[in-house]
Design a protein around this nucleic acid. Structure first.
Lengths: 175, 175
DNA sequence: ACAGCCATGTAACTTGTTACATGATTTT
DNA sequence: AAAATCATGTAACAAGTTACATGGCTGT
């Protein structure tokens, strides 16, 4: 529901037309998550169907149709903002590693290693980007860098833990 | 593609029937991500359509149909295992916080606070669960606890950073 | 003139997911 | 005998996503 709710959040500020929603979304997320503009229109259609937005304003010469959030839409949005993100959607990394451990025909250490290398490279890139940051930069850019760095960091820590525990298991197996 | 690839990974070990795939998946992920068995059948249908699995063995009296991975399926699976997880799918927490910051009609601090409380509670639960852990426990159970704890930890750290940077901005705004 | 962005929209598709119908076998 | 688990499958839908068709406007 992330895209849906994001559009509602932008519309809650002011009525906006399709392309404007795309731009707003990308501006707010510092261009990190590009949004195919086609998706804006499909999503708007679904939001209208569900009564969360309605067409707004003159569909004049310039044809751009603006959309306005409804009371029901505001309710949904408030609920979204008020409820913490806490479901645990299937985590691809975790599942991959666990299945690799379970499979005897797969070299788990190799997989962990590859992941580790990729994440460390990413971490370096991010760190470099953050160093280049200056206080005048967009708050969102900086916060997203912070988040990505923290995430990459915890990922590497976990991969280390995996290796340790695997070594532990192997030692026990060979005893 | 996580479910798809997971089923392939299980089938790569040995031919299995639908319900067995469900059980295997849940065992391997320590019951953390229940898999509606209906989804196994729909996914198997799609995997067969794409030539990644094929029916296997006698469809005898007991009717349970087993499935075997194909060469094409093995290829897909290998690619999955070999490629690091590194896309950055839209992060709901990040987007929520950033949009809340952008919206003047939303109390960001309140949202961050709620999230923080929820995550800290979760962290305590997880820590308690980990303390109760004993070495005889399933490796997957322990690793999943480790991962969740690390993730919760980094989430809290990020929320702190958000608050700090927001305070910084507010100070600058009022100067 | 041409490239690139602004702008709207649709068709087609993917994966994930659940609700439901149906029944056999196993455990309590 | 009842409850739980094993077992198969289908219909329907949600949300995300892209490729494509179409055109105006802007800067080089």
């Amino acid at each position: 529901m992330t895209v849906r709710n994001s559009l509602l959040a932008i519309l809650a500020e002011q009525p906006t037309h399709g392309y404007g929603l795309k731009s707003s979304f990308e501006r707010n997320t510092a261009g990190l998550w590009p949004l195919n503009v086609g998706q804006v229109y499909t999503t708007l259609g679904r939001l209208e169907r569900d009564g969360f937005v309605k067409p707004w304003g003159k569909v004049t010469e310039r044809a751009r149709q603006s959309w306005k959030i409804t009371a029901a839409g505001r309710k949904t949005l408030t609920d979204w903002f008020e409820s913490p993100v806490e479901d645990r959607p299937r985590d691809e990394l975790a599942i991959k590693v666990l299945l690799a451990i379970a499979a005897d025909s797969v070299d788990v250490r190799e997989i962990i290693h590859r992941q580790r290398v990729a994440t460390m490279e990413r971490l370096q890139q991010l760190t470099r980007a953050k160093r280049k940051t200056d206080p005048k930069d967009d708050l969102s850019t900086v916060l997203l860098l912070d988040l990505q760095i923290l995430r990459a960091d915890s990922e590497i820590k976990w991969l280390d833990v995996c290796e340790q525990r695997l070594r532990g298991r192997r030692r026990r197996d060979t005893l």
